[in-house]
Design a protein around this nucleic acid. Structure first.
Length: 465
RNA sequence: GGUCCCAUCGUCUAGCGGUUAGGACACCGGCCUUUCACGUCGGUAACAGGGGUUCAAGUCCCCUUGGGAUCACCA
């Protein structure tokens, strides 16, 4: 156990999206690699926008990805007294002050400044004290230094410097007494002993103010790592327009969590030419310094490829279990037909998602399926009937119904008839599966079982007439 | 507009002064084959532009251009 402490701090205003998931993953990986502590904190100071459903959705997403945390979840909404104390401390020390400017006044000043081409920052009206205006509402502002430079060495971006005169006195407590984000994030990270802050690079501009706050509070400044954002195919911020952004939506589309993890980590991070990483390998090899600086485009094709890879690698029993809900969704009870793991085995190489696998598995469980029209017209022809019938009879007598036994039977059959496999194979396929695209016919017969295979062959013979 | 960040194939990226600029996804061919796939072999495809520094620049510096983020009593 080292004393490295990291956190993921989502705000519960929606589901866990892929960008947040990647940030969480980076934090988690680094904490596991350094044998440190991973903390989950819910940033719900905006009581109006935060919901319990969102919290649940985020937790569910973390769980699906296998990102467990050591401390928390902590809720900022439960820590208001703590923040209040720190605000009062700053005020008492003269490092923060009451500001009586109204939102309307500020908005007007901002617009004027913008119009005149000046920086739209707070003009410091109340900075040096004002006469007590009775019980007028006020906010508390942090008294930021106007001179000097605030610098930090970002673990990903390198050295970043800001002139302090670019910064204005940010509000740390609203007129209703609640604290604001830039303040609570500092208080929490400081009091929770966070050593490294990994977050989206949209927070870069907040960082100097936060550093100033750490210094005013007398806390050590953590290290920062700002990860670039994830873009859609058109290089704009990833949104619903580009497809699903919720990680749970990917589960529902039939993706495996290990594929998602592998994809997300490789989007922005790399380790030489390696593409496939097990969870253990990631923990061993991940490093925040190796994360790229530039934004990356979310590429569904590559995710699909990875998912296909993991489907091929997975144990049929596990996939069968994951496949059940997808089968039920299609109105099929896997208990009612062939052994599901056996079915899965025939489909692994040709399924990129569990959705594709479920679609491909349907025919196994439907005895009275309709034949694909074109396929039937082409292959279920009068000439095929006697062959199918003879094959069925031969199959009926077969003792070894393993794939190899079935293959041997076919070899023998075509030798006896003096034909090629191509002259009977397609008809068998259509009889068994209903179409021309399917797993190999030997494995289909094995999975179906002799009885059902015979039934389907004879059904086809009967239909040909 | 101010500030800040970013820039190698279509996409994800390797590269950390000297390479025929490598890999992966996608795409296009060949092979394999009972279909569809898998697999396998091969191919198309990139250093944004301009200045420097250096014997030597994709690699270091500056500028331009182009993207993006952020400027709330949201987080």
């Amino acid at each position: 156990m080292s004393d490295v402490r990291l956190r993921f701090a989502p705000s519960p205003t929606g589901y866990l999206h892929v960008g947040g998931a990647r940030t969480a993953l980076f934090n988690w990986l680094l904490s596991r690699r350094e044998k440190g502590t991973f903390i989950l904190r819910i940033e719900d100071t905006d009581v109006a926008r935060s919901t319990q459903e969102s919290v649940d959705a985020i937790l569910q997403g973390m769980e699906w990805l296998g990102l467990d945390w050591d401390e928390g979840p902590f809720y900022q909404s439960e820590r208001f007294p703590v923040y209040k104390e720190f605000v009062e401390k700053l005020v008492a020390e003269g490092k923060a002050y009451r500001c009586y400017c109204t939102p309307e006044e500020l908005e007007a000043k901002r617009e004027l400044a913008m119009k005149e081409g000046r920086k739209p920052k707070y003009d410091g009206t109340c900075r040096n004290g004002v006469e007590e205006p009775g019980d007028k509402p006020y906010v508390i502002r942090f008294k930021a230094p106007h001179e000097g430079v605030t610098v930090f060495d970002d673990l990903i971006k390198g050295r970043i410097a800001f002139n302090n005169d670019e910064l204005d006195d940010l509000i740390i407590q609203r007129s209703d007494g609640t604290p604001t984000y830039n303040f609570v994030v500092v208080i929490d990270d400081a009091t929770m002993g966070i050593t490294t802050v990994i977050r989206g690079d949209d927070h870069i501009n907040n960082t100097p103010r936060q550093i100033l706050l750490y210094e005013a509070l007398g806390y050590p400044v953590p290290r920062f790592a700002h990860v670039p954002m994830i873009l859609g195919a058109d290089k704009t911020r990833l949104s619903k327009r580009h497809g699903a952004t919720s990680v749970m939506a990917y589960r529902d589309m039939g993706f495996l969590p290990e594929a998602m993890v592998n994809y997300l980590v490789r989007l922005g991070w790399s380790h030489g030419d390696q593409e496939i990483f097990s969870r253990e390998e990631l923990i061993e090899k991940f490093s925040i310094e190796a994360v790229g600086k530039s934004a990356g485009v979310f590429n569904p094709d590559k995710l699909l490829w990875l998912n296909h890879h993991y489907i091929k690698e997975s144990a049929p029993e596990r996939l069968a279990e994951l496949l059940v809900p997808f089968m039920k969704e299609r109105g099929i009870d896997p208990e009612s037909g062939p052994n599901l793991p056996l079915v899965v085995k025939t489909l692994q190489e040709r399924s990129r998602t569990l959705v594709e696998m479920a679609d491909g598995a349907i025919f196994y469980y439907q005895g009275d399926f309709a034949y694909d029209e074109q396929a039937a017209a082409k292959h279920l022809v009068p000439d095929a009937a006697p062959l199918l019938k003879a094959l069925a009879d031969k199959l009926e007598a077969l003792a070894d119904c393993s794939q190899t036994g079935i293959e041997a039977l076919f070899k023998e059959f075509i030798a006896e008839k003096g034909i090629k496999l191509g002259q009977v194979g397609p008809a068998v396929r259509v009889s068994l599966c209903g179409g021309t695209a399917s797993p190999g016919i030997y494995e289909v017969i094995e999975a179906l079982g002799k009885e059902e295979a015979l039934r389907r062959l004879r059904r086809a013979v009967a239909i040909i007439g």
